[in-house]
Write a protein that binds this DNA or RNA. Structure first.
Lengths: 212, 212
DNA sequence: ATGTAATATTTTGTATGCCGAATTCATAGT
DNA sequence: ACTATGAATTCGGCATACAAAATATTACAT
């Protein structure tokens, strides 16, 4: 088996993000470095490195002398994030290889149809959604853009747990994914881009009511 | 005078970026943490924190065990960055308050006209250009978007010194800025957005030949 | 009882030290 | 002379130690 040979800061970052998905941290909570480090079984140094990375991604905010805290959630910020991701993913889809898009379209359609079937726990659904978008953008040659999208989406993870336990928006999401895939199958990339944009805007509105 | 009361990592980050503007670091160069820390008069800890931040912004890359190095420049990456910033600034302009845009339009025009007059050193010009764009986007209410633009632009600073010593593209840049400002004065924001997009694409092409 | 000042405690920010991995140089063998 | 193998050294990654700031606490005065 391949032993984990990656910087601790990266592993810590991912662990914190997945805890965030589970809703382990309340937004707006101050982070105590010593206790969190002890909890994770690492020293403060790599933990702080992870925290600084997350602060750069907007997951945390840092105030001089007061350390780090999970950035509070707000409808306004969520809308801002959705607008950004919509623009970035649209761009990514725009500069994707059309041939590649056609080749993955069947898979995208299939995944979208399987969507509501496995109504497993929330985390699985979230991963599923992310994977679908990742596949959609897999033909984008702009590496920096893909990294940036990943980074911005990290900031949205604070909102992930808020959608738990409601199947209706899930069905809507799947329907919109099917629509995008069908446009790609029909070789109409421009319409797919528009549908993707709509997907984010609609998803934003679905979420809005759940944010305090 | 107000004494500097900010985390060292931020001051270090800015110092490194301004050194980058001056072309002090060759792209692709490995960074020796100990010697750089000694040079800056700080310890390795806040330096590493700054390096990690810069790596998150794409200014540096980090390889396991080999530490940090200035990410090598390439035409491809520069094009990627320009496409991203074009999309982000377009979005920012798009969701700006039209009334505010009209109110700053005269200033923007004036600044653009003053552009080539003070043909001072390169750094001043770069700052001037950045300030113009900052003012242009000052009416954008999407805070996260503005932060993101700043962050992506940090990655472009590796290319800043390459444009030194050529006035022709500067004149073109100023002309395009005037064009944008005039659209805003005429209350045609949509055209201004398009002109802004063109500005980035043209600026990209102007730079291309200078990148190895 | 409440507000304020002084002190104690907690927690962050920074510096230093140690260990292991990775690179480099030297040496031996073909 | 060239490659391969091993030793030495350098350097990054992480832990620990220290300093400074912020928060909590207590004592005192009004």
């Amino acid at each position: 088996m391949p032993i984990e040979r990656r910087p601790l800061r990266e592993q810590i970052r991912e662990e914190l993000l997945s805890r965030l998905d589970r809703g382990d941290f309340a937004a707006g909570t101050d982070i105590n470095e010593a206790s969190l480090a002890a909890d994770l079984g690492v020293s403060r140094t790599p933990l702080r490195e992870a925290l600084i990375t997350l602060a750069g991604e907007g997951v945390l905010e840092s105030n001089q002398g007061r350390g780090f805290r999970f950035a509070p959630v707000s409808r306004r910020e969520f809308r801002e994030l959705c607008e950004i991701v919509a623009a970035l993913e649209s761009l990514a889809l725009d500069c994707s290889d059309p041939a590649h898009l056609r080749s993955i379209a069947p898979d995208l359609l299939k995944l979208a149809q399987d969507f509501p079937d496995n109504v497993a726990e929330q985390q699985v659904i979230e991963r599923h959604d992310d994977e679908w978008h990742d596949l959609l953008l897999s033909g984008c040659r702009n590496e920096r853009l893909l990294d940036l999208i990943t980074s911005v989406k990290a900031g949205m993870r604070r909102y992930a747990h808020l959608i738990a336990g409601d199947d209706a928006p899930l069905e809507r999401e799947a329907a919109e994914h099917r629509r995008i895939a069908e446009f790609l199958l029909a070789d109409e990339p421009a319409k797919a881009v528009q549908a993707l944009r709509d997907n984010w805007i609609n998803g934003m509105e679905r979420m809005m009511s759940r944010i305090p």
